[in-house]
Amino acid sequence: MSSEVLTDAINGLAAIILLTSIVLVASKRMRSLVRTFMIQSLALGMFAAVVAYYTGADHIYIVAVLTIALKVFVIPYFLEYTIDKIHVKKEIEPLVGIPMSLLICAGLAFVGYYVSEPIIASGDAITKNCFAISLAVVLIGLFLMISRRKAMTEVIAILVIENGIFLGAISITYGMPLIVEIGVFFDVLVAALIMGIFAYKINRTFETLDTTFMRRLRD
């Protein structure tokens, strides 16, 4: 394959990752959140695979396979299981209205672009554009975490942030050493599991997943 097609594929997948993170901000139903996250992770896995092919660094293939296995199958399955278990269907009114959140996210993406501009300008790597997108995804993930109330959404938000960081790591360094990657994956898996269980416990204790009720813990 010519390198142009590969570049296009890399850019396209990065765009899909950005697009899905914006769609995440627009959706309120838990299931659609999980589905969108699945699509994002699938795009990320494919992104890693294409980068692996492009750079010829074989260990990134393993990373790609792990990404798809964990973030497209294991974690979403677990999240859906938890959602079924605790009967949360959708987010209650978010703290910031959805149209406003979307515009804020556009602004955050601008910030991401602006901040990463020196790197884009100086870099010559094929994936340099993706760094801007990864920064935008991380910022959007953080915003998602701040603006929502349900613990489940926050779990997904942290996973989105992780996806963004992962995207940035691949695009800048073409992947960290394999052992580090694997360590990160286990971290994420364990974090997702623990947070899922926490969400379950929060729900049992407070009869709600609304994290604003956690203020009661102060007393």
Binding site: L19, I22, P99, L102, A106, I120
Partner: peptide, 22 residues
Amino acid sequence: LPNLLTLSFTLALLAVTSYYIL
């Protein structure tokens, strides 16, 4: 509807900006 409409508006805005930047 505004949620979905703003979503498409945001995407379009990001599209134009992404063209400029990326």
